[in-house]
Amino acid sequence: MIEQNSAPPAPALRPVRGAARCAIAFLALAGAAWVARAVWHIRLAVAGQPASGPPDQGDGVHRPLNTLEDSYHLVASVGSAVTAVCVIVFLLWLDRMRDNAKALSGTDPRYGDAWLWLGWILPVVNLWIPWGVIADVHRSVFPERPLPAVVNWWWGLWLAGLAGGMGIIYSDDTDEVIASAYSGVLSLLGADLVIIAAAGAAALMIHTLTTAQQEHVAGRGR
Rank of each mutant, 00 (worst) to 15 (best):
T67P: 02
P55G: 08
P130R: 00
I121C: 10
Y170A: 12
L193M: 12
A199I: 00
I129S: 03
V16D: 03
A218K: 10
A181V: 05
D192S: 09
A51R: 14
L94I: 09
G221R: 13
L189R: 04
S187P: 06
Y72E: 03
Q214M: 08
G132D: 07
D70S: 15
L104G: 01
G165R: 01
V46D: 14
G48I: 05
D70M: 13
S171K: 08
E144I: 09
P146I: 00
Q49R: 12
S105D: 04
A181S: 10
I88D: 12
G161N: 01
V137D: 01
L116Y: 07
G184L: 08
L29D: 04
A7W: 14
I24A: 05
V82P: 00
R14A: 15
L92G: 00
N5Q: 13
A149D: 13
T211H: 06
A20Y: 06
V177D: 07
N152M: 07
M166Q: 12
I169N: 13
P8M: 09
R96D: 05
V125L: 10
A202L: 07
Y182W: 13
L162F: 09
I24T: 07
Q49P: 05
A135N: 14
A218P: 01
G165Q: 03
P146Q: 11
S180I: 11
M166R: 11
N152W: 05
V39A: 08
G167S: 04
Y72G: 04
R220I: 00
L162Y: 02
S71C: 14
V87D: 07
V185H: 01
P8L: 09
I168W: 05
R222T: 15
